[in-house]
Design a protein around this nucleic acid. Structure first.
Length: 394
RNA sequence: CCGGAGUUGGCCGAGUGGUCAAUGGCAGCAGACUGUAAAUCUGCCGGGCUUGUUCCCUACCGAGGUUCGAAUCCUCGACUCCGGA
């Protein structure tokens, strides 16, 4: 069946690793993979306009169901006919389902088999969130890619809790799919892809299993049954653990999930993570890392073909640094403004500083994924990927 | 000239006999950040070294004094502010 699959087309498969380039065909456009998705939780990548975001090389925006549900709320999103009209982003959008908020906001919610009861800190309101509701909201948002509501255990190192988590995630995925089909007039796009006339949004399944390889395996095997058009691998960077352990977790799941379907690694990661996990079969990434670090004054720089470093712009040594932020940037601002000036903007908490740093880091990330694609397409990925490393700046 | 209030570490500002090298905040220096309650958070922040939950110096305007012990009490002086002549 794989040869009919037209949601995702693989262009170049690396000979010795699972790395591949491809195109993901979505309602609002095509994404060249491996790709990094910038995070715009509330509909905006903090500090940037859509035009600036595109200049960084962004192909697809990630937003968040839970946060959009609270603000601006369903009513407003319905009035606009979806997030694309509301925030004027005309490219593809992937929405996270809100499952992660059960984990990140775990102090403010309780959950059971039915769903999650969130307490809103500002108002004290208690609101109930279920797989069905997440699907309804994402349908209103009109995401190109929606995610099922998954379940994350509160303790990432507890085997029993993680075993329960993969089972509940499976049941919630099932409910998500059922509701999704209902909301899309009975149409389901699975392993057969879609026909050319009926371009339609898609829903990804999610795997869990934390650091337990047998749970990772079972979670992936279970989710196969539901025949999603693509998969997100969840529960990855939840706590401290050895790098190899995480590589193995991803490796085992990408081995089980259909090769011809797109794989998304939720919430990862650092530049080295990206390169590494592409080698283990990941096509899509999303992470707060470049944007949050930007706002906190840490900028990413390429040193050479297989090394990157970071610079903390607030350091004293940049006080008199007349060099441009990035002489090779697509942004005239980053070619013109000096590091000294950028430090000054950060010191004085001028918003322009956060913007420039965000532009810079996202441009770095998107250049990195472009480089990964180029390495794969020219057959050089396999000899390069394990050499790619971070070097501390001094 | 008289009466009142005050003077604390780079700045602002707590502290009114020992547990005070002195709470906070700012500034400064350094670090963290992985499906964003994060333009946030953490550490250091008089000097020295053998870096000590009880080390050594120098410190709460200045000079004396009381006391086992003073940023804290007393005396005098300097300066600032507020009233009144």
């Amino acid at each position: 069946m794989a040869y009919l699959y037209n949601i995702f087309q693989i262009h170049q498969q690396s000979p010795k690793t699972k790395a591949r380039t491809g195109t993901l065909n979505l309602v609002h456009g095509t994404v060249h993979t491996p790709a990094f998705m910038s995070i715009g939780t509330l509909g905006t990548v903090k500090t940037l306009t859509n035009k600036e975001l595109k200049t960084t090389g962004a192909q697809i925006l990630l937003s968040n169901t839970y946060h959009l549900w609270l603000k601006p709320g369903i009513k407003v999103l319905k009035q606009f006919g979806g997030l694309h009209q509301f925030n004027s982003w005309d490219g593809p959008i992937l929405t996270d389902s809100g499952g992660f908020q059960m984990f990140s906001l775990r102090k403010n919610n309780i959950s059971n088999e039915e769903g999650i009861l969130f307490t809103i800190p500002e108002s004290g309101d208690r609101i109930f969130f279920s797989p069905e509701q997440s699907m309804q909201i994402q349908t209103v948002i009109n995401s190109d890619i929606s995610l099922v509501l998954d379940y994350l255990p509160v303790e990432e190192t507890n085997y029993k809790l993680n075993e329960q988590a993969i089972e509940r995630t499976f049941r919630w995925s099932k409910r998500s799919k059922k509701e999704w089909i209902k909301l899309h007039q009975g149409k389901w796009i699975g392993s057969q892809g879609y026909d050319k006339s009926g371009k339609q949004n898609i829903l990804f399944g999610i795997t869990q299993g934390a650091r337990f390889l047998d749970l990772r395996q079972r979670s992936a095997e279970m989710i196969l049954e539901l025949d999603f058009p693509g998969y997100s691998i969840g529960g990855m960077a939840m706590g401290p653990e050895p790098e190899e352990s995480r590589w193995n977790q991803v490796d085992i799941q990408t081995s089980i999930l259909e090769t011809y379907k797109p794989k998304h690694l939720l919430g990862v990661g650092t530049p080295t993570d990206l390169v590494r996990f592409v080698g283990y079969g990941i096509d899509l990434f999303d992470c707060v890392y470049p944007t949050r670090n930007a706002r906190h004054g840490t900028l990413f720089f390429e040193l050479d073909d297989n090394t990157y470093t970071t610079e903390r712009i607030l350091q004293k040594k940049f006080e008199t640094d007349v060099n441009p932020i990035n002489p090779n940037s697509n942004f005239a601002e980053l070619r013109q403004y000096s590091k000294s000036y950028l430090r000054h903007l950060f010191k004085t908490r001028e918003t322009l500083g956060y913007r420039l740093a965000t532009m810079h880091n996202l441009e770095f990330y998107h250049n990195l994924t472009a480089k990964i694609r180029q390495k794969i397409n020219t057959g050089k990925f396999d000899e390069w990927w394990q050499k790619y490393k971070f070097q501390k700046n001094n």
